[in-house]
Design a protein around this nucleic acid. Structure first.
Lengths: 151, 151
DNA sequence: CAAATAGCTTGTATAATGCAAGCGATTTCC
DNA sequence: GGAAATCGCTTGCATTATACAAGCTATTTG
């Protein structure tokens, strides 16, 4: 007699997580999207860490495949796209916040005031804000792209 | 007039954190030490992910250099060493717990009952336990190595 | 309509990782 | 107590990932 559920991934969640972001760049793209309001290829590229163009393209592709981000046509320009975290992508919020908390406490690195407040206050006020913002952006982009398609 | 403190690392804490564990293996060694009670080279090597010998040696060296782990002579054998997380190393606890929480919720990966309980209950009961255990182990290893030195 | 720009892709060099073998210091076995 | 096995690495080499520069296409600007 076996267990009824055979879909459980027996691996350690740490290992699973590292499949996703066990590299130098993925979480920096997530950070840009989650906390710095960046949405476009060129904006990610402009981050001070200096990701290369091919690596950025590769990470965006992987994040798309894993359903952590979505890609929309940019209402302002036909040659750029807008990337947005999905709800699943925002599921990385707590990990990101703990990483930032760690970086601040041990190394006195800097974050935005918004993040700083979230780290010090605890709770998930910021997460709720991010979820709302994201939903609003997504709605706007979807209606725009529909309108665009009917032109 | 400048700020008095010139030691602040201006980089984003995410980037700082990725310097430390932005790779495939470092956090798996931390997991072994923090939650699975592994202490020796051979035990890390035996983890199911299958780290290579040179990579393991390299990561242990880096973790030592960064003060996240300590190395003690093994009281039971002159050819092995015992590695222990420092308090600074245990500072990664919250990050690890959030990573495991993420892995469990989205992918139903498995953790030890002890970790599962910690994830579900919240609070830092487990962290306190780990800190105590670690201190006890460290004390034992230090007294043993002193006794050994006087032989 | 020419030049510039955004978002990539495509080489190619370098660095990180994976794999297997080897090596010195113990420890075990007979 | 000597030979063989074991442990904790290190070293060499093949493969993969990343960095850097250039190029290409579609769009947009002047």
């Amino acid at each position: 007699m076996q267990t009824t559920d055979t879909t459980i991934d027996l691996r350690c969640p740490t290992s699973l997580a590292l499949d996703l972001f066990g590299d130098r760049w993925t979480l920096l793209v997530v950070r840009d999207l989650m906390f710095l309001g960046k949405r476009r290829y060129g904006e990610f590229l402009a981050s001070p860490e200096g990701i290369s163009t091919n690596i950025l393209a590769d990470r965006l592709k992987k994040l798309l495949q894993q359903g952590l981000i979505e890609k929309f046509p940019d209402p302002d320009s036909a040659r750029t796209a807008v990337y947005l975290l999905t709800e699943s992508g925002l599921g990385l919020y707590s990990i990101m916040l703990e990483i930032m908390r760690w970086g601040i406490s041990d190394h006195r690195a800097r974050v935005t005031p918004e993040v700083d407040k979230a780290i010090k206050e605890g709770g998930d006020t910021l997460l709720l804000t991010l979820l709302e913002r994201n939903q609003a952006e997504r709605a706007a982009l979807q209606s725009q792209s529909l309108a665009g398609a009917s032109n």
